[in-house]
Amino acid sequence: SVRAYFKLQKPVSELVQYVEKLEYDIYEEIGMPATKVVVLSMHQSGASNSTDVVFGLLSDPISSPINPVSLSVLRSSLIELFLQQSNLTLTTSIFGQPSKFEILKFPKGITVIPVQPAFMWPITQMLFNFTLNNSIAEILANFIQLKDQLKYGLRLRPYENLFVQLTNQKGSTISSPVIIQASVTSSDFGNLLPQRLKQLAQTITESPAKNLGLNNSVFGKVKSISLSSYLKGTLHATAPTASPAPSPEPSISPHPSFRPTHPPASSPKSHHPQPCRKCKAASPSGNSPLHSPGPESGPYPSFPPLISPAPSTIAPPPCPYSRPATPRSHSNLTPHHPHSTSQLSPDLPPLPSVSYGSHPGQGIDSVKGPVSAPLAQSPSVQSPS
């Protein structure tokens, strides 16, 4: 059964004849289906004219237990009346205004959450609990002092918030002891960071001698300090260590960067001209690199060096009597001439011919057979003396 208490500012002699009316008014306020309200006692409160009323809420019929859902709703209603978050409204002309509402007994206990400042972050779990030999009513009477002393004893920081709730396993607000469950949150991050949780756990475990910072004369001695499994796990957690310096090996990036690459050397079959049978020019040695003629080798303009082929393959020199074959690929590596040499503008100098013989002109002097007329020399180029 459920039992509760409140005080009326009327003498008992004036209330006895209205017991049934009082039971009806209480049922209208907090009654549940398949239940009934019974006034168990009415006693004069000390020397005053006030009356202490004790009532019970029983199942109806009495042999059947109260529905669990109804019991949960009833528990919430009684706690709201105790915290004065709602009012018990009775017939005022007969009973006046009730006061000092208390819960005397409730199945499976009650948990009271005192009015506290609103938190930005939700409370996910309680971090620790301890027991005080006080009643819920006594603790609430000194609640601000309780929180301030706990914050000091736990060494909380200005941006950390303390949240507590009070549980009495007998389901009473006037009986002791009370289990106080507490949690700490950060105004910036919500849940505390692991390293801060470890510091908090160490402070709590070292605090029994300091009574968690609570005044013994007001709250008595703190008993049965217990950490939650989550907070207890932080005591044995190893702190993160700095990772070792990376080895000089190249690192692998999730977004590989591609360096510009040159196309492979042209194959002799597809891009190198066939050697001319009429030419007797000696092929350049495989050990001597090919270079464009520089200023010291003659009055010919210099050209950027060509991409050297693979060391094992060297193309034969081009024949002066045949048109050079234009590669069909890798056009971006050679200059593009939109017209052949026979259609060059008279204002532009002809392309010079590069000889690969041991001396300049060797490939032309040793040719047998007819030779085509040489290209006209540009007037801007002086002949060597």
Rank of each mutant, 00 (worst) to 15 (best):
S285Q: 14
H272W: 02
R157K: 13
S226M: 06
V164S: 02
P260E: 07
L192W: 05
C279S: 04
T334I: 13
K10N: 07
K108Y: 11
A281Q: 09
S176F: 00
H43M: 12
S331F: 08
F6S: 01
L348I: 12
S308F: 06
M120T: 14
V53M: 00
T238E: 07
F101P: 04
N87K: 13
Q169H: 15
G31N: 07
A282M: 11
N67D: 06
T51L: 02
Y24T: 08
S226L: 04
K280Q: 11
L193N: 10
N287C: 08
N129G: 12
P304H: 11
L58C: 10
T261Y: 06
L127E: 07
L193Y: 10
T131F: 00
S266E: 10
T173C: 02
H359S: 15
S355Q: 04
L235K: 13
P352T: 10
D188L: 09
P301N: 14
P114T: 03
L74K: 03
L344G: 03
Q44Y: 05
F189C: 11
V222Y: 00
P275L: 03
P240F: 12
N332Q: 13
I26R: 03
N215D: 12
V2D: 00
D365W: 07
P264E: 12
N87E: 10
D60I: 09
Q274G: 08
P305L: 11
V371W: 07
P68F: 03
P384Y: 06
R277H: 14
S50Q: 13
T313C: 14
L81M: 07
V37D: 00
S176A: 13
G153S: 12
Y18R: 06
K36T: 14
Q9C: 05
P317A: 08
V73E: 04
L162W: 00
A282T: 13
C276W: 00
V69Q: 11
G286K: 05
L197A: 09
K210A: 15
K170V: 10
Q17W: 04
P246F: 04
L83A: 10
F128W: 11
L57G: 04
G171C: 02
S283I: 13
G363H: 09
I79T: 02
Q97K: 14
Y5I: 13
M32N: 00
K108G: 09
I364F: 09
A310I: 02
F303W: 08
P98Q: 08
S372H: 12
S76L: 11
R259Q: 05
G56H: 01
P177S: 05
F163P: 06
T241C: 12
N133F: 06
G31V: 00
S251F: 08
Q377N: 13
H337I: 10
A34G: 08
Y159L: 08
T124R: 05
I79S: 02
P317K: 03
P98W: 04
V69S: 14
S251W: 03
V37E: 00
Y321I: 03
F258K: 15
L58H: 09
V115F: 09
F106R: 03
F303Q: 12
A34F: 14
T261K: 12
P318L: 02
S331W: 09
N67L: 00
L104F: 04
I110V: 10
L90S: 03
S228R: 03
P360C: 07
V19P: 14
P256F: 03
S297L: 14
K232D: 13
G56Q: 09
L71E: 12
P256H: 07
F189G: 14
S270R: 06
R323N: 15
T91H: 01
R323Y: 15
S186F: 01
